[in-house]
């Protein structure tokens, strides 16, 4: 049976309207509601289902971030992860934490914990990088099944259905492997109070990036964060002829 490592990220809640900081260095996070990255919820759900189907023996949730990352880990534990590892990264280092750092951390922890499968969300809804799974697989030199919409156990390893441009691709991978969860992989369960209460009793270990030997100096420099351009108001035309005339005028037809 496999041991599964799941990466979970604390991000600004999907329902919050994101505001850019006046100095354009990033977005406003103070006093803003945060929750688990929705694609990571799908990753946790898939890992827990593997455990419930006896394909996995243990599910370990990992999060990199400040103290509040522990809330996200508690949610993963309430969803059914067995234990959690909080990689504490705060302040300036957290501001410049990049997918390469997270991939190095996940790769190191997968080896330390003897994981057979790493699952992460395909991307985080804050920076939309979509790099962590791919980089983790590259560092470990493991096969990868990204944008997974279906994962099945086969004799030799896993059969992964991937969501690609124009359709679905089915691949077979050996184990160990890295997976990234796409939207249609499953519908994550809601953590009820009994599960939330019991999650408080599950073990959570705290480590630093230094403990894992991962250098957190930034490799990417953010030049400027800008608001998307404001959409200009449209106009209502009285009839089709006027519409066609306007389109011709604007050079659209």
């Amino acid at each position: 049976m496999s041991r599964v490592l799941v990466g979970v990220k604390r991000v600004i809640d999907y329902a919050v309207k994101v505001r850019v900081k006046p100095d354009k260095t990033g977005v406003v996070t103070d006093g803003v509601k945060h929750s688990m990255n929705p694609f990571d919820e799908i990753a946790v759900e898939e890992a827990v289902r593997m455990k419930e189907k006896k394909l996995a023996s243990e599910v370990i949730a990992v999060s990199c971030g400040p103290t509040q990352a522990q809330e996200t880990l508690r949610t993963a534990l309430a969803m059914g992860a067995d234990r959690a590892i909080h990689v504490e990264i705060a302040g300036a280092e957290y501001e410049t934490l990049q997918p390469l750092h997270v991939a190095k951390i996940l790769a190191k922890l997968s080896q330390d914990e003897k994981a057979d499968i790493v699952i992460v969300g395909k991307q985080a809804i804050d920076d939309d990088s979509n790099q962590t799974a791919q980089m983790t697989a590259a560092i470990l030199d493991w096969p990868q099944g990204t944008f997974a919409s279906k994962v099945e156990k086969s004799d030799a390893g896993l059969t992964v259905t991937r969501e690609i441009d124009g359709g679905l691709e089915v691949i077979k991978t050996k184990l160990p492997a890295v997976l990234s969860a796409d939207l249609r992989l499953n519908e994550p369960r809601y953590a009820t109070l009994p599960n939330i209460m019991k999650a408080k009793k599950k073990p959570m270990k705290k480590v630093s990036a230094k403990d894992l030997g991962v250098d957190l100096s930034p490799r990417i420099k953010v030049v400027s964060v800008e608001d998307p351009p404001v959409r200009q108001a449209g106009a209502i035309v009285p009839d089709v002829d006027t519409l066609v005339a306007k389109l011709k005028e604007g050079g659209h037809v």
Binding site: Y190, T192, L193, P194, I196, M197, K198, K200, K201
Partner: peptide
């Protein structure tokens, strides 16, 4: 605390008990 109870689906902060481990 069963699915028939309001607490089942409540958020932790809405529970009148801090750690109702005896409810399970």
């Amino acid at each position: 605390v069963t699915p028939a109870c309001a607490l089942w689906a409540a958020r932790a902060e809405d529970s009148p008990f801090a750690d109702p481990y005896w409810g399970f």
